[in-house]
Design a binder for these strands. Structure first.
Lengths: 190, 190, 190, 190
DNA sequence: AATGAATGAGTCTTCATTCAT
DNA sequence: GATGAATGAAGACTCATTCAT
């Protein structure tokens, strides 16, 4: 039983890894099988098709992401600190799981997204939305549609993480701090 | 010769259209040929391979994008207005060319990107970088690495445009204005 | 031991049922296992291979068919009545076991037939042959090769039953009677 | 253009031949390709799928069969002679195209039949039906549902031809004559 | 005896690319 | 230049069979 779980997990992880590297269509099932150390047919015990496999990889990742978001005690922090904590959590998650970032991008720009529904970052966005809506209603943030704000923040984090990954640009910790301050300063109530 | 140019253009446009809709690997050459109204073999008169075709589509788009950036007289505007003009230009370009956005995303997250080199948004980023570097050096903007700033701005525009396209969120003109003001306020020198 | 027999029987019946519906190759062992309520491996305790299973299904059916042939007291009937009794027995068997008809057809037109030998309807034909040979030698029937006659009769019954099954044609009892009379009249000594 | 037609024909003939020998599912496309002397992919220029190929083989055969039926001048023959001519035509067709017989049998007992409709022998049966209906209405034949008669005749011919093919039984020309006389005598008006 | 996870050879099908016309 | 028939390697997926439990 443990054995089983392990194989399924191995397949999921391998798929994620390979898709990051070679893309959806550059990742044949045979390669997944080989790298995961199972027979081609075995994958089909756990997943009905390549499509389902990919969708399950997405869900699998999504869970991890949601967990990561909640890291760090938010209890009696100031709203601003909470915001920074959130920003850092998201950023770190994407930094530490570069596979995820690429996978997400590919997933969103693919027919798979339609399968799952609005799919991708919705859970994350929902969480973000609620947090920012609270900020607006309590007067910490400008009176702007929280939907708009969450888009801004998410786009900001993702772009930052992506930039780091592609390593076109080297950003040090200080600059990282600046980035989130720029976003905060832009959003904060005057 | 005119004939030729037309066919080549038809192939480029068709490819872009199809890739937007079905992705790289969901777009067989045979389909491009059919929709472009040429024979399969004809494509290979103009492009050495599918890879080359895709890379040329990228270049083709890139040209348009660069042109768009320069729209609107920047001559005696204030720096802030120039910034807003730039933001709007970029935003409008992405809005009006949704194909491009999807194509870019796919392109960046693909092995093709490696072929072209740093590829993608570099021309745009270079332009942006120079503009923002000027802002920093002239004291209009905070003293932050212009590289960082350009990432912020580009990510901001793209995310906004993408959101609009996916229509998860409806953003009106006022909110659009707010978005660029938030970014500006965050970056502007105190 | 009863348990075992039951499982074996369940597998045989399920296989027959599935093959009728989906054909030999449309009937994977896994499906047989599932519908028969046993594990895939279990089938291989009772049958060496899929081929053997199919051949045993054939034998299993053959037994039933032979039994059916002998129904109805033939003792002091006239030869003509005996013939009609035989015709009806065969017809009823095929009517009541449509699975068998389809299975037979598939079996005969398949490599399996070679495995079993002359296979299929031989037992039935042998019985028929003997009965008709008797009719010829005793002067009830024309002086025709009994082999030929048995082919005629068997073909006649099977075609009739098949027609009824496919329901291209609706035949009532009277017409059924006519059919066997036509055959009888054709064969009967002048 | 001749070249093309030839390849398509080669594929059709090869498929028929192979299916007769190994059955639908025992005939991989790769084998068809090899025996037909074309590449695997080529088949898919002419036929959308294996299913379509098989259905087209069926139509291809049907045409030949219908042609064969009409052989021999039926003009001023007696009705009985016309019947014998028809019987012989059908018989000869099945004898000379043993592939067809096996293919038909397989086709009827398969999901393909559903695709084409009532499919199989309908054209032949229709022709037969009309001929026999005429016989009944003109008083040459017993007053029996022509539908029933056509079933009888068709079953008779097919069974005879099948028997010959399987060579379980050797039937000489005289016996063949007897067979059709038996059928005729059974059906003829008293 | 029974299970069912695992295997991997074999199937249908697609598609980038070539080449004779 | 233009065509599109032909190629064949490669991919997703199936399924008879095995074997550790």
């Amino acid at each position: 039983m443990e054995q089983i779980a392990e194989k399924k997990k191995a397949i999921l992880e391998t798929t994620l890894e390979l898709i990051k590297e070679h893309g959806f269509h550059g990742t044949p099932m045979s390669l997944v099988a080989k790298k995961a150390g199972v027979a081609a047919g075995t994958i089909y015990h756990y997943f009905e098709s390549k499509d389902e496999l990919i969708c399950e990889v997405f869900s699998y990742i999504m869970q991890k992401a949601t967990l990561a978001l909640h890291q760090g005690g938010l209890a009696e922090m100031s709203y601003k600190d909470k915001f920074f904590n959130l920003w850092v959590n998201l950023y770190e998650f994407y930094r530490n799981n570069p596979n995820v970032l690429v996978f997400f991008e590919q997933f969103v720009n693919s027919p798979y997204n339609a399968i799952i529904g609005h799919g991708c970052q919705d859970q994350i966005r929902t969480y973000l939305f609620n947090f920012l809506a609270e900020g607006v209603s309590k007067g910490y943030l400008r009176s702007v549609n929280p939907e708009v704000l969450s888009v801004l923040v998410l786009g900001n984090v993702i772009t930052t993480a992506k930039i780091m990954r592609l390593q076109h640009v080297k950003i040090n910790d200080e600059e990282l701090q600046q980035i989130r301050e720029i976003i905060w300063d832009g959003m904060a109530a005057r």
